[in-house]
Computed example of a mutant assay.
Amino acid sequence: MSNPKIIIAIAAFLLAIAVAAGAFGAHALKNILSPERLETWQTAVQYHAWHALGLFLIAMIGAQLDITVTWPASLIFAGILIFSGSLYTLCLTGIGWMGAITPIGGVAFIAGWIWFGIKMLK
């Protein structure tokens, strides 16, 4: 994930998926999931969308400043997959242990943003 164009393309696809997931939750799942699970779904969508936008910004800034952002972008991408993915799976399947891996995605988000911050200071 070192090419900014690829990162931006991935971010665009992730944003499209976030919009679809939000609509799916608001329309298809509103009468199926409990209010608590629907809130969990919404949390997954919000983190998914915000971090996809962040991924886009990381790529744009990296390209503008001509710095490699492979690790920060990869960690943010992994965070979306693990954090939001585990919450989506939890909501759709009811598999409780999926919630236990969600914090790993959160740590990936934090690590990605810290790594990006360090890159900006160099």
Rank of each mutant, 00 (worst) to 15 (best):
W41C: 09
I8K: 04
L33A: 08
I6D: 05
A16L: 02
W71G: 04
A59N: 08
I82A: 08
L65C: 15
A28S: 15
V69P: 05
T43E: 11
A21L: 14
A18C: 09
L75M: 15
V107C: 05
S2R: 09
K122R: 15
F83R: 13
A63H: 05
I104R: 06
L29A: 08
L29K: 09
L14I: 00
A108D: 12
A44F: 12
I114A: 10
A23G: 15
I6S: 07
G85V: 12
Q64L: 15
A111F: 04
W115N: 05
V45P: 03
A63I: 04
E39Y: 03
G117H: 07
A52V: 03
R37Q: 11
C91S: 15
N3K: 11
I101H: 02
W97T: 13
A63R: 09
H27C: 13
K119F: 02
F77A: 13
W50C: 01
A59K: 06
T68E: 15
L29D: 09
Y88S: 10
L75Q: 07
T93W: 13
I7D: 01
I95V: 11
F109V: 01
I6L: 14
A18R: 02
T70K: 13
L90F: 15
K30Y: 07
A16Q: 06
Q42V: 02
T70S: 15
I101D: 02
W41N: 11
F109G: 00
P35T: 05
C91V: 15
T102L: 04
P4S: 06
P103Q: 08
A18L: 03
I58C: 03
F116P: 00
A78F: 11
L29C: 10
I17F: 03
L92Q: 12
A108R: 02
L15S: 09
S74L: 15
I95Y: 12
I80Q: 00
E36N: 08
G85D: 12
G117I: 11
A108G: 13
P35D: 08
L29S: 12
F24S: 09
L92K: 14
G106D: 06
F13M: 10
K30M: 07
A100E: 06
A52R: 01
M1R: 04
S2F: 05
H48C: 05
G117R: 05
P4Q: 10
F83Y: 12
F13A: 07
A108I: 05
A28K: 13
G79P: 06
H48R: 02
I17L: 07
A73R: 01
H48T: 03
I110L: 15
I58P: 01
Y47Q: 03
A44C: 09
G96A: 13
M98V: 00
I32T: 14
A11F: 00
L87I: 10
I114G: 08
I76P: 02
I110T: 14
G25L: 05
H51R: 03
